[in-house]
Amino acid sequence: MQFLKDIYSLFYPKICICCKNLLLSNEILVCTICRHDLPIICYTDFKKNKITDIFYGKIHIENANTLLHFQKEGKVKELIHNLKYRGRQEVGAFLGNWFGSMLADLHVLGDIDIIIPVPLHKKKKRKRGYNQLTTFGESISKILHKPYTEDILVRTSFSKTQTFKNRMDRFLNTTSKFYLKDTLALKNKHVLLVDDVITTGATLTSCCLELQKVEGIKISIITMAFAE
């Protein structure tokens, strides 16, 4: 069996998604050097940090955190863009397993009841073929032993990608609307809302405003990365 694996690797070598160098046999998706170079954030204080500051005075959230610092150019951008636009859903699993393990070690989100992603509009999901948050959310779900569901919160308006827009354009583009299909399922629940990259927080705020229509709901937020 190992011989067949070696033959397969000879013709289909695995390369680092960031630097494009060959991966060693014990490396997954990202080489050791690139992984150590990734700018980790993961604040130790989940209640007061740069992510919670984004929502101050807009909505109430219990906790918020992010894994990586997103820059206009760099390895984090390469990871996220491979996940969103090149079909590399294993990036979501890689980041979810990594962040999920860190969250479990910090023992902060142990009281959450359910994990929900920021939804894609059905047109965009049909075009892309997947929600880039699925493997990320599912991986965290397995580690934290909490259910993950994509069918409760839906996006009702379609907007073009905001990846290349500046911060002001993102803030002004608040047309995304969301609809909660089942309010009873979230009554008195602590929801963990997950997203990929947070900038102004406009989309997450819109999601939270819809979720906060539920009686007794509590909301925490985590994202793959934060773009300052």
Score class of each variant (00 low, 15 high):
3 F>W: 13
6 D>M: 13
7 I>H: 09
9 S>P: 06
11 F>W: 13
15 I>G: 09
18 C>D: 06
18 C>T: 08
19 C>H: 06
21 N>Y: 06
24 L>D: 15
30 V>D: 02
42 C>N: 13
44 T>S: 13
49 N>W: 11
52 T>A: 10
57 G>I: 08
62 E>Q: 14
62 E>W: 03
62 E>S: 14
63 N>G: 05
63 N>E: 13
66 T>S: 10
66 T>N: 00
66 T>C: 10
67 L>R: 00
68 L>I: 05
70 F>V: 00
70 F>L: 09
70 F>I: 00
71 Q>A: 10
73 E>M: 11
75 K>Q: 12
79 L>G: 04
82 N>P: 01
82 N>H: 09
83 L>P: 02
84 K>M: 09
84 K>L: 11
84 K>I: 08
85 Y>W: 08
86 R>W: 10
86 R>M: 11
87 G>E: 06
88 R>W: 00
89 Q>H: 03
89 Q>P: 01
93 A>P: 01
96 G>W: 01
97 N>C: 06
98 W>L: 06
99 F>N: 03
100 G>C: 10
106 L>K: 15
109 L>E: 03
111 D>Q: 14
112 I>S: 02
118 V>L: 01
118 V>M: 02
120 L>R: 01
120 L>S: 01
127 K>S: 13
128 R>N: 05
132 Q>S: 02
133 L>D: 00
134 T>Q: 04
137 G>P: 02
140 I>A: 00
141 S>P: 03
141 S>W: 02
144 L>T: 00
144 L>H: 03
146 K>G: 01
147 P>T: 04
154 V>I: 15
159 S>I: 11
161 T>D: 15
161 T>N: 15
163 T>N: 13
167 R>P: 06
168 M>G: 03
169 D>G: 15
172 L>I: 14
173 N>Q: 12
176 S>C: 14
176 S>Q: 15
179 Y>T: 02
185 A>C: 10
190 H>T: 03
191 V>A: 07
193 L>T: 02
195 D>G: 09
195 D>V: 10
198 I>W: 05
199 T>M: 12
199 T>S: 13
200 T>F: 10
202 A>M: 15
202 A>K: 12
203 T>A: 03
204 L>S: 03
205 T>R: 09
215 E>H: 13
215 E>A: 11
216 G>V: 02
216 G>R: 05
216 G>W: 04
219 I>F: 10
220 S>G: 12
222 I>R: 08
222 I>H: 08
222 I>N: 07
224 M>D: 04
